[in-house]
């Protein structure tokens, strides 16, 4: 039992931290634009595909360096030449624009790389078990994923709260006009934040591609869950997103590992239903079976009981 618990915690941490890399960029962009970027997970997918193509020629490490920069640059260009124009027409237009962009990117990826799964492999350098616990290996690559994610969280936190740039960004988000009158180029700051945010999604794609498989549906699979995290964590809050990411990662991992289900609940209540009962599917439901949808349940509960999320400040 202990082995399952330890490994579930590790698995939950890996997933949670990966989700955080996506959520951090999304929540930053949200606090800046006031609009959710529906195409965010698509930038994550682009990161994986760019890194895959680069890794074929120059190896994994070159991909890790170059792909996020490419994705970030692409993101910045999208902000500069498309989103900024759409911005003038209000939030709904922006929302619809990012929604369309997500579809466009998915189709483009299928057009250029094809619809099948890509053979994107983790580097040979990390192809060994980091440690073996209770007969189960924990790969070095997963350790590497944790290191990168934690590193990015610390760096981001430091830059935003301790550096001059961070102060200007925070000010630009809440008081754009004042910051502009102080002589800062606010549109440039917005473009940079968008670029960095999408670049972070790119990093997530680069390191997740080899383990979660690189295929055109990868954005859709991860996209919805990232929105859940940002909402649960409180829109615009980096700390909230961090807590929510870990929470969801661990919640899913534990739910899958557990063997609890409706039969246990019914036993405990002393109830019994025959197999022919019309709701038999409900009475035999187990926690692992519904694990991947639990975050959405959590989302609904949070929206009902604490609409601002865990650490959200806005209430408008």
């Amino acid at each position: 039992m202990l082995e399952v618990f330890v490994f579930s915690t590790l698995n939950g941490l890996v997933t949670g931290l990966l989700l955080f890399m996506l959520a951090s960029g999304l929540t930053l962009i949200f606090s800046m634009m006031g609009v959710l970027n529906f195409a965010h997970a698509s930038f994550y997918m682009l990161g994986a595909y760019f890194a895959y193509s680069i890794s074929l020629k120059l190896g994994f490490w070159a991909g890790l360096l170059v792909a996020p920069i490419l994705v970030g640059t692409f993101g910045a260009l999208v902000e500069r030449y498309a989103l900024r124009r759409v911005h003038a027409h209000g939030h709904v237009a922006e929302l619809v624009f990012t929604f369309g962009l997500a579809f466009l990117i998915e189709e483009a990826v299928q057009f250029f790389w094809g619809a099948d799964t890509k053979n994107y492999q983790s580097p040979d350098l990390l192809d060994f078990p980091l440690f073996t616990l209770f007969g189960q290996e924990f790969s070095a690559y997963r350790g590497f994923m944790i290191t990168i994610s934690v590193g990015i969280f610390l760096a981001l936190y430091y830059v935003l709260t301790r550096s001059r740039i961070g102060i200007i960004i925070q000010a630009a988000i809440t008081h754009p006009h004042t910051v502009a009158s102080l002589g800062h180029n606010v549109p440039l700051i917005f473009m940079a934040v968008f670029g960095v945010g999408t670049g972070l999604a790119g990093v997530a794609g680069v390191i997740a591609g080899p383990v979660l498989t690189t295929f055109p549906g990868m954005a859709v699979v991860l996209g919805s869950i990232v929105f859940v995290i940002v909402v649960i964590g409180g829109l615009g809050s980096l700390g909230g997103a961090f807590v929510a990411s870990l929470m969801i990662g661990l919640l899913q991992s534990y739910a899958i590992a557990s063997n609890l289900g409706m039969p246990d609940l019914l036993n405990w209540l002393g109830l019994e239903f025959s197999r022919d009962h019309p709701l038999n599917d409900l009475w035999t439901l187990t926690l692992p079976q519904i694990a991947p949808v639990l975050p959405f349940l959590l989302l609904v509960l949070v929206l009902i009981f604490r609409p601002t999320g865990l650490a959200g400040k806005r209430e408008e």
């Binding site: 399952v4 698995n11 189960q136 979660l212 699979v221 692992p288 079976q289 949808v293």
Partner: peptide, 21 residues
């Protein structure tokens, strides 16, 4: 004897942990 939602699972490692144990 495990079921998971179709096309929804991002990472199968938690399931594999159960298989191993």
């Amino acid at each position: 004897n495990e079921f998971h939602p179709i096309g929804q699972v991002k990472d199968f490692t938690p399931y594999v942990t159960k298989i191993v144990s």
